[in-house]
Amino acid sequence: MTDKDMIICRCEEVTYGELVETANEYGCNARELKLRTRAGMGYCGGRTCRNMVDAVACTVTERDSKQVTLKYQPPVRPVHFGDLGAIGHD
């Protein structure tokens, strides 16, 4: 297997090749790279691939050292739909 076909984001099945090509084509930062490829947008919320997506983006853009490059969103752990619906009703 080559680097090109290697999966980086397992949830959304985004490959290294796709990330590097997108980064080079658009010169994009981590957030834009995420939005263009869906890397980090799966059910794990980017917990696994976050730093790898970040690293690829940093090869074409300057790191924003004052702001986390890929924003954290709640819930940061999987929540059952039943529990989510129950919030505020318990």
């Binding site: 730093n51 924003d64 050292s65 004052k66 986390v68 954290y72 709640p74």
Partner: peptide, 17 residues
């Protein structure tokens, strides 16, 4: 290793790399 910031990232606390 990297500092696990996912919860504090929800609070609006500023960060520095």
């Amino acid at each position: 290793l990297y500092p696990l910031a996912e919860l504090i990232g929800l609070t609006g606390c500023p960060f520095h790399h």
